[in-house]
């Protein structure tokens, strides 16, 4: 009886695991078939007005890159505060908890916040507003990874540095950061991968544009927002374009993720 029950339960969990994996596999296969079938070189040369994706790819990368430019240094420095300067203090714990909570804040709400802050007062959507919204999403993620990577650096290394008479600042930059370099790098890549696929915070901050532009003060081409509007269009060609864009986006996200994992594994 016990053995039978054991078999039944294990079989059930195996079946549910297979169901879950089947769904996820189904999505990936669909994406690969739909995306790859419409793939062509012209997608990367033409802009959305001419049924290409060039402006969207470049635009999305610029938005995410700009967000990283702001979010990564701030996140790392804040992570250093939590783990090194404020270590153990109530305030540092408080900030860490807040940042963890903020990491799960609904992204559309952050979009609404930036809309009220940067879009409405300045009279329209802009690339800056989009990048700002993404930066807000990114900071807590970078804080979280920096914090946990610094926690892996053994205490003895810090003590040795201090014993040699180095200032705290020197210890952090010459010893701790160096020891945690690879981990922090991985964290940066993973958080970049997280925000590059975001749609909701961009919907009404950067919106999107059919044309190639580098002007950050007007509506800015965003791949994810365009996927959303293309998929809602009735024409088959627009949907195919949306699938190709999704495919490129997914490949991008997965590649960045795998690179991040690869460099950590190689180092350890």
């Amino acid at each position: 009886m016990r053995l039978l029950l054991n078999k039944i339960i294990l079989a059930l969990s195996l079946v549910s695991a297979l169901i879950g994996l089947a769904f996820l596999g189904w999505i990936l296969v669909t994406l690969a078939i739909k995306g790859a079938s419409a793939m062509s070189a012209s997608l990367f040369i033409k802009d959305l007005v001419d049924n290409g994706l060039r402006n969207l790819i470049v635009g999305q990368l610029i938005l995410a890159g700009l967000a990283s430019f702001v979010g990564i240094p701030l996140g790392i420095v804040a992570g250093i505060y939590i783990r090194e300067y404020g270590q153990g203090s109530k305030y540092a714990e408080f900030i860490r908890d807040l940042s963890d909570i903020m990491m799960s804040a609904p992204s559309i709400v952050i979009g609404a916040f930036v809309f009220a802050l940067l879009v409405k007062p300045f009279g329209g959507p802009s690339g800056f507003a989009g990048a700002f919204a993404l930066a807000i999403m990114m900071i807590p993620i970078v804080i979280n990874t920096t914090d946990s990577m610094l926690s892996l650096v053994p205490k003895e290394l810090r003590e040795a540095g201090i014993a040699l008479g180095a200032s705290k600042y020197k210890v952090i930059f010459n010893i701790v950061i160096r020891a945690a370099k690879v981990g922090i790098m991985t964290g940066i890549l993973l958080s970049f991968a997280r925000i590059v696929g975001e749609t909701a915070p961009l919907l009404f901050t950067s919106e999107t544009s059919n044309y190639f532009t580098l002007d950050l003060t007007s509506s800015f081409p965003s791949m994810t927002v365009s996927i959303y509007s293309l998929a809602n269009e009735p024409e088959e060609s627009a949907r195919d374009l949306a699938w190709s864009a999704s495919f490129i986006l997914t490949i991008m996200v997965l590649l960045i993720n795998l690179t991040g994992r690869y460099i950590t594994r190689n180092k350890k």
């Binding site: 701030l74 996140g75 420095v77 804040a78 250093i80 505060y81 939590i82 090194e84 300067y85 404020g86 540092a92 408080f94 900030i95 807040l98 940042s99 903020m102 804040a105 709400v109 952050i110 609404a112 916040f113 009220a116 802050l117 807000i136 900071i139 807590p140 804080i143």
Partner: peptide
């Protein structure tokens, strides 16, 4: 570094008040 850490708090308060 203290300032950047406090930024998290400021942003959260900012989101709440703006909303």
């Amino acid at each position: 570094s203290l300032l950047s850490a406090s930024l998290v708090f400021i942003i959260l308060i900012g989101i709440f008040t703006t909303l």
